[in-house]
Simulated scan of single mutants.
Amino acid sequence: MAKVKYTLPLLLILALAAWWFIPHDSEEDKAYYVAVLCAIDHDSKQPLDQQMRNVIEGGNSDYALQKIAYKPRLGRSVIARWEQLKADEQQRAAQDNLLCQQLLKR
């Protein structure tokens, strides 16, 4: 009985700590990264993640108290969805921002 008395709270603390350290991206952040990916130049020689970083962090004002930092994991996730699109879908999405966002939000 004493083992359960200490084991259960310890397991609860470990589960809470694991949940705390797992990144949780809001739907707003995901939509923002999709919009940024759809707005950048897909024919550029610069990698997509670098272009996204430039747009996201480049929008920060020098005097801003809270600067938006690029989240590489979220950026890679959105880019991976882009790369899963077929070539013709990518071509159409690169021309039509709304279609691009619809395809990537699936």
Rank of each mutant, 00 (worst) to 15 (best):
W19F: 10
S26E: 01
I79A: 00
E27V: 09
D25H: 12
Y33R: 06
M1E: 07
D25C: 03
M52F: 02
D41R: 12
A64S: 12
L10P: 01
Q84E: 14
S77F: 08
A2C: 05
A87S: 14
H24R: 14
R106G: 15
V36S: 06
P23H: 01
Y33F: 02
A18N: 04
D29N: 12
C100H: 03
L48Q: 07
I40R: 09
A17N: 01
W19K: 04
Q46A: 14
L98Q: 15
L14I: 12
V78Y: 00
A2H: 07
N60P: 02
A31N: 11
A94T: 03
L16Q: 01
V78W: 02
L74G: 00
K5H: 06
D96Y: 07
Q84F: 13
L65Y: 10
A35Q: 14
L65T: 08
D96H: 06
Q51N: 07
L48H: 08
A31Q: 13
Q95G: 05
L99G: 04
R76F: 08
S77N: 11
K105D: 15
L103F: 02
Q84V: 09
A18H: 07
S44C: 04
D29A: 13
R81F: 06
A15W: 01
I40W: 06
E57H: 04
E89S: 06
R73T: 11
R92H: 09
K45F: 11
L12S: 09
Q50C: 06
A35E: 13
D41A: 12
I22L: 13
E27Y: 04
Q84W: 13
E28N: 10
A2N: 10
R53D: 04
Y33M: 02
G58Y: 01
E89P: 00
A87Q: 14
P23V: 02
V78K: 04
Y70I: 03
Q84L: 15
K67C: 00
Y70W: 10
L104P: 00
A17K: 00
R73M: 11
